[in-house]
Simulated assay, not measured.
Amino acid sequence: MKILHTSDWHIGRTFHTHSTLGHLRIVLDALAGAVREQGIDVVLVAGDVFDSSMPSAEAMTLLSDAFRTIREAGARIVMTSGNHDSITRLGFHAEWIRLADIHVLTQHSRLEEPVTLEDEQGPVHFYGIPYLEPSLIRHDYPGVELRTHEQALAFAMQRINEDRAMRAGRSVVLSHCFTADVAPSDGVERDISSGGLDLVPASVFDGPDYVALGHIHGRAQLSERVRYSGAPLHYSFSETDKLRGGWLVELGADRLGEVAWLDLPVPRRLTPLTGELDDLLTDARYAEHEGDWVKAILTDRVRPMDAMRRLQQRFTHCVALEFKPSVTAELTTASYGERVRERTDGEIVAGFLEFVRNGVGPSEYERGLVNELFVEQDVREVRA
């Protein structure tokens, strides 16, 4: 059986206020094309199907279209919910879309009820673990201590492994969680927690032939059989160098076979550009990035005026701006009184400008303007 492991579609998410629906549609259409070309039997989505618990009509339509194109390409679909999803909304039509071989697993009370799909080598049992928030499920299991995500996932896997032991065939688990074996980064979809209570060791998932994880936005291999696929789109500039795609998993007759990476297209590249504003606006070597999502990191010693508008005249999709001057003023321990003692008003203003502009004092125009203002003030005081 050929399985494509994906996760974190985040349908409806914006990128610096820009809709990503059009780009995600391109990627999911390419995914359906890969299903047809590669002969993929099952597509997995390990949580965070939507970006919001209340997805828009446009987001719902995109999911419906993705279901249709993937099924028309020949693959069945198994998905579970993540922390961004509403299990009620995502699972609302689960009973009847199952008839179309689209399986949405959102109920923690039904972990022992796998989706069983057949190939020429026998059954494969797919278990879906929705995102488990201990504080929201512990009242359903009064005899079980469920204070941490590790305890919740260990309890879920215990139930699944007990069911696995009574069934013949191979098994796959989908789960949306954050394992302690992956370093935290901006590409991790994490909840606010205290003391690492949301961390789950990879050893919790011992047992199944393959474990498809979601929750981080970059691919990661925890072991040969436990992996993250990452998100299909870049949702942060911290993800710029992370590949986009999914794991193509082959299950043999009695064990895990080859696992290979399948690239998916990147509709618009993410590119951080560093330099002084004038260089970014005029240097020919940046021409290839004019159609990218651009984050400009300006190194000018003085913050340029109207920088974003000027950048967007060349880089239409410049969406982020950071000021990081190449030279910064040295801090002094002298008090304010010590710094201004025996200095004229004009010198005090010049010193202030030099301090806030990283060592760059007033221009000749600014110096003349300051002197003119102080002269006018002196004239008014004499007249008074």
Results as ranks from 00 to 15, higher is better:
Ser7Ala: 15
Asp8Tyr: 06
Thr14Gln: 14
Ser19Asn: 11
Arg25Gln: 10
Ile26Leu: 13
Ile26Asp: 11
Leu31Gly: 02
Ala34Cys: 13
Arg36Gln: 07
Ile40Gln: 03
Val43Thr: 02
Asp51Trp: 00
Pro55Lys: 07
Ser56Met: 13
Ala59Tyr: 05
Met60Lys: 15
Ser64Gly: 12
Thr69Arg: 15
Ile70Arg: 00
Arg71Phe: 00
Glu72Arg: 05
Gly74Ala: 01
Gly74Tyr: 02
Val78Leu: 03
Thr80Trp: 00
Arg89Glu: 13
Leu90Thr: 02
Leu90Ile: 07
Phe92Lys: 15
His93Trp: 13
Arg98Cys: 13
Asp101Trp: 05
Thr106Trp: 02
His108Ala: 07
Ser109Cys: 11
Ser109Phe: 12
Glu113Asn: 14
Pro114Lys: 06
Glu120Lys: 14
Pro123Thr: 03
Pro123Arg: 07
Val124Trp: 10
Phe126Met: 11
Tyr127Asp: 09
Ile129Val: 14
Leu132Met: 09
Leu132Lys: 11
Leu132Gly: 05
Ser135Gln: 10
Ser135Thr: 09
Leu136Tyr: 14
Leu136Glu: 15
Ile137Asn: 04
Ile137Leu: 12
His139Met: 15
Asp140Val: 06
Pro142Lys: 05
Gly143Ala: 06
Val144Gln: 12
Arg147Gln: 15
Gln151Asn: 05
Ala154Tyr: 06
Asn161Met: 12
Glu162Val: 03
Arg164Trp: 05
Ala168Asn: 14
Ala168Glu: 14
Gly169Trp: 11
Arg170Met: 10
His176Lys: 11
Val182Ile: 08
Ala183Ile: 13
Asp186Lys: 10
Glu189Pro: 05
Asp191Met: 10
Ser194Glu: 13
Asp198Val: 01
Leu199Ala: 09
Val200Thr: 01
Ala202Tyr: 01
Ser203Asn: 09
Phe205Tyr: 06
Asp206Val: 03
Ala212Trp: 04
His215Thr: 02
His215Ile: 02
Ala220Tyr: 00
Gln221Cys: 09
Ser223Gln: 02
Ser229Val: 04
Gly230Asn: 00
Gly230Lys: 03
Glu239Ser: 08
Glu239His: 08
Glu239Lys: 04
Thr240Met: 07
Asp241Asn: 15
Gly246Cys: 04
Gly246Val: 01
Trp247Thr: 10
Gly252Glu: 10
Ala253Thr: 07
Ala260Leu: 10
Leu262Val: 00
Val266Leu: 15
Thr271Gly: 07
Gly275Cys: 05
Asp279Pro: 04
Leu281Thr: 00
Asp283Gly: 09
Tyr286Leu: 14
Ala287Asp: 15
Glu290Phe: 04
Gly291Lys: 15
Val294Phe: 03
Lys295Cys: 10
Ile297Asp: 08
Thr299Cys: 11
Asp300Ala: 01
Arg303Ser: 07
Pro304Ser: 05
Pro304Tyr: 01
Pro304Phe: 06
Arg314Ile: 01
Phe315Trp: 01
Phe315Asn: 00
Val319Ser: 09
Phe323Asn: 10
Phe323Ile: 06
Ser326Gln: 13
Glu330Ile: 10
Thr333Leu: 11
Thr333His: 13
Ala334Val: 08
Glu342Val: 03
Thr344Gln: 09
Asp345Val: 09
Val349Leu: 02
Phe352Pro: 00
Leu353Gly: 05
Leu353Glu: 01
Glu354Arg: 07
Phe355Val: 13
Gly361Cys: 02
Gly361Trp: 06
Pro362His: 01
Ser363Pro: 01
Tyr365Asn: 12
Glu366Pro: 03
Arg367Val: 07
Leu369Arg: 14
Asn371Asp: 14
Glu372Asn: 08
Glu372Trp: 05
Leu373Cys: 13
Glu376Phe: 01
Glu376Ala: 13
Arg380Met: 00
Val382Tyr: 00
